[in-house]
Every structure is written in structure tokens, then in C-alpha cells.
């Protein structure tokens, strides 16, 4: 994923807190994935307006971690979601 690209959750895909399992899940029609704390933190920044570069910069400040590491891990994470149609990207 390039820094200028804008990740966005497609219609019908949303974050949901599962009170039974006490975990965050990403729900899509008839499908779901579970998220860990970092995955939830990444998706919480996805608003369909800010670019991948802006999001990873914010996460680097929030986690006090190198932005290069954040970009690498986030790109893999969001790429995996995109491949399974849990995420769209606009540019």
C-alpha cells in the first residue's frame, strides 16, 4: 500500500466489539475476522479520508514506534484485509 492511498471500509463492513469473546471483530456480510489490539488500533484510524501515510504517522506517534516498522506491518495487515474484500483503497 502506497503512502498516498486512502484505505476505506466498504459498505457493510464495520468494527464490532464482541462482548462474549471480549475481542474486537471486523464484520462483513456473512463473514468476520477477529482483531488483536494493534489491528483494532490500525482500523480505528481508517476513516476513508486520511491517507495511509497520515494514518501510519499517527500510529507511530501513538505507539512511540518507528514509522517504517508501522508502515511495513500496517501495509501487510491492510493488504491481507483488502485481499479478502474487508477493505477498499482509493487514491
Amino acid at each position: 500500500m502506497e503512502a498516498e492511498e486512502i484505505p476505506v471500509l466498504p459498505r457493510g463492513v464495520r468494527l464490532h466489539y464482541d462482548h462474549i469473546r471480549e475481542i474486537w471483530v471486523l464484520l462483513a456480510p456473512e463473514r468476520a475476522v477477529t482483531l488483536d489490539a494493534v489491528g483494532h488500533a490500525i482500523l480505528s484510524e481508517v476513516d476513508g479520508e486520511r491517507s495511509f501515510g497520515e494514518i501510519t504517522q499517527k500510529l507511530a506517534e501513538k505507539f512511540n514506534a518507528p514509522v517504517d516498522l508501522i508502515m511495513q506491518d500496517s501495509a501487510g495487515f491492510l493488504g491481507a484485509l483488502r485481499a479478502r474484500r474487508f477493505l477498499d483503497v482509493s487514491s
Binding site: 471483530v25 463473514r31 468476520a32 475476522v33 477477529t34 482483531l35 488483536d36 494493534v38 489491528g39 490500525i42 500510529l59 501513538k62 505507539f63 514506534a65 516498522l69 508501522i70 506491518d73 500496517s74 501487510g76 495487515f77 491481507a80 484485509l81 479478502r84
Partner: peptide
Amino acid sequence: MAWNKPVIREIECMEINMYGP
């Protein structure tokens, strides 16, 4: 709030690891 490589598990019928360390 420590950064770790994020993990995704897809729920099918069971949790199946989809991405992560």
C-alpha cells in the same frame, strides 16, 4: 500500547489464522 505485528483470524463456521506472526 506496545506495537506488535497485528494478527487477523478469520472466523469460518472456528477461528482460522489469516495473517500474523
